[in-house]
């Protein structure tokens, strides 16, 4: 939970009084691995929640797509725009960049025959073959991994600025604090 800031050290607090520590570092850690930014801020329960939900969604999508739905390709054959949202999960999606660089350099992708997170071999029509073989699991895997990445953008913002209701000033709590009509404090 939130801790009181020490007087001799500059602290970054959200409007809700939550100690966000170094918010830029927290945001970077939150991108690097879902929940890591919250662990750094000692918001452990939320860190566990985000880590479990986002990584399980991402991994389930990867399993549905047999590890092929997350890949980076920005060449003339295909612009894989879904990767821009998938990379929101950070480190788990980064092997796709390594695979793309290897393929561009004319090297064999890592992980052997499985071609995990490697772009399809367009010359051999592998993309069409993948669509044909995986059928709707290709779309489902893409959607699951994309949503996982997009959800982590919300988490990154939460690590940077605190929960949204605290930013709005928690209107429900303020309503209860308002003095009743006719009392001395009201006009």
């Amino acid at each position: 939970m939130a801790k009181a800031p020490s007087p001799n050290k500059p602290q970054t607090q959200s409007p809700g009084g939550i100690d966000l520590r170094d918010r830029w570092l927290a945001a970077f850690l939150a991108w690097l691995l879902p929940g890591l930014g919250h662990f750094y801020q000692r918001r452990t329960a939320k860190g566990v929640l985000f880590c479990v939900m986002i990584l399980s969604t991402f991994c389930y999508g990867l399993v549905l797509g047999e590890g092929r739905v997350v890949y980076a390709s920005f060449g003339p054959q295909e612009r894989r725009l879904p990767y821009l949202s998938q990379v929101g999960v950070g480190l788990p999606a980064l092997p796709a960049l390594v695979q793309m660089q290897r393929v561009r350099a004319g090297k064999e992708p890592l992980f052997g025959e499985s071609r995990f997170m490697a772009p399809p071999n367009y010359e051999q029509g592998e993309l069409s073959a993948l669509h044909l073989r995986l059928n709707r699991r290709w779309e489902l895997g893409s959607v699951f991994t994309m949503i996982a990445g997009l959800l982590n953008f919300l988490v990154i913002y939460d690590a940077f600025a605190g929960p949204a209701d605290a930013l709005r000033g928690a209107p429900q709590q303020k309503a209860t604090e308002r003095p009743p009509p006719g009392s001395a404090g009201s006009t």
């Binding site: 939900m53 969604t57 959800l151």
Partner: peptide, 20 residues
């Protein structure tokens, strides 16, 4: 049925970014 885990994940993460 594939929508159920998505709804659960989206709900929990979205709500998690609204409250502490």
């Amino acid at each position: 049925w594939y929508s159920l885990p998505l709804v659960v994940a989206i709900s929990l993460v979205y709500a998690g970014t609204r409250h502490e």
